[in-house]
Write a protein that binds this DNA or RNA. Sequence first.
DNA 1: GGAATAGTGTCTGTGAGACAGTATAGT
DNA 2: ACTATACTGTCTCACAGACACTATTCC
Lengths: 250, 250
Amino acid sequence: MNEQEFLAGYDPTAYPAVAVTVDVVALTIREGALHLLLIRRGQPPYQGHWALPGGFVRPTEDLATGARRELAEETGLGDDRMRRIHLEQLGSYGDPDRDPRMRVVSIAHLAFAPDLPDPVAATDAAEAGWLPVTALSGRQLAFDHARVIDDGLERARSKLEYTPLATRFLAPEFTVSELRGVYETVWGQPLHAGNFHRKVLSVPGFVEGTGTSTERGGARGGPRAKLYRAGDARLLHPALLRPDREETIR
Amino acid sequence: MNEQEFLAGYDPTAYPAVAVTVDVVALTIREGALHLLLIRRGQPPYQGHWALPGGFVRPTEDLATGARRELAEETGLGDDRMRRIHLEQLGSYGDPDRDPRMRVVSIAHLAFAPDLPDPVAATDAAEAGWLPVTALSGRQLAFDHARVIDDGLERARSKLEYTPLATRFLAPEFTVSELRGVYETVWGQPLHAGNFHRKVLSVPGFVEGTGTSTERGGARGGPRAKLYRAGDARLLHPALLRPDREETIR
DNA sequence: GGAATAGTGTCTGTGAGACAGTATAGT
DNA sequence: ACTATACTGTCTCACAGACACTATTCC
């Protein structure tokens, strides 16, 4: 350890400043498609490119609070609707050159939200909106946000296997079919309706019946479906594993 | 958005400085017990308390590189032995008051290492060593490191279920019994030897035989065991689930 | 010989998935 | 009437866990 390193151990100002931001990969399901909240940047760098909502963490807030605040600012949601949104830490991204202006370490978060109204663009963004994740390929994303989004989507797919968080994409009361729709949308493949139904009801604590049913059957016929609420389980056991995972193993 | 917030969006120096550190929860197995690399702090705050190895991120290194560097510095290992250590990001800890000196956001990492020699204390630490994790309860840990360690241990237990990373606690060639020992140590419960044996060999890509066997049988008798290497799987399918997870589900 | 360990055989229960079938509603 | 959907029944296969057993080696 030389003199510079010794000093640096005690005096962080011996190093150039590092900025800490929080970014949010916010997912929701609209019209059967997985959507992502994105902001079109109004100034350089990456002016005109799409970016994740986020910003500098404030002195008195912790990381999760900062992420929740950024999400609330961009979506314009009140406390009541914010409370139904699941938010967890996704990971930190700190490559030295990920932001051309300075060293920025971003703590990315992942959010699952029920279908929400279109966001009102904040003053520091030219535009904000929910974009289908299928529309991202080919589009130029700011910073390393393409990778953050990829990580977030994979985390979301994985979380649906072991946790009951799929319910967070739905209204407080939902049918098994709607829940199956969440899985099919996030995983990107159809599931067997009958087996899914039995499986969901057999996992302890996943859902609990409300005793009520939908007012009408399906748009194209069928009986009225029973309504369920999220149960008290925090983990699904046994888990609902994705079919055909062979590709990702090696 | 008021004037201060507007400026802060463009000029991070409008906020008080934030320091970014990397910390490492480094785990290894010694004499059948799970051990953790800890440093006894030589100066305030938390002087004399045990803390995770870590330090400030340097301007030109990314987060994983910083964590690997800190680990190498504390253990005194060369590149060859460092390469066999698994390192992954664990999570970020950024509560505003976690460090009394200033705002410090720490990106914690998790490392799995084979049995290593005792570390040589670096100049900025009074003492360094591998401590059994069972010896931690009751001991005063610096900062929020007790929580970081808890999160790391739970992550380690979980990773052994879905990945072949248990092999990272062992030498390049190992027996099924030694591998079972890793699981039993990390999970803290005995496993059925026969079923474990069959299970490990049946998971594609978990281990591959070397064609050789140990020189001697067990210390207290038994045949010579076949030797295996880590296979090419990155995920175990089907997974090796911990027995009796009911407690953690709700 | 006695004891411990490596490794295999077998049985049972659970659960996933395929498939079929019934009941209920919309058009 | 026709069709789509909700939900249930049944069969098969895979696998986890319990138990038993043999073979090998150390003491």
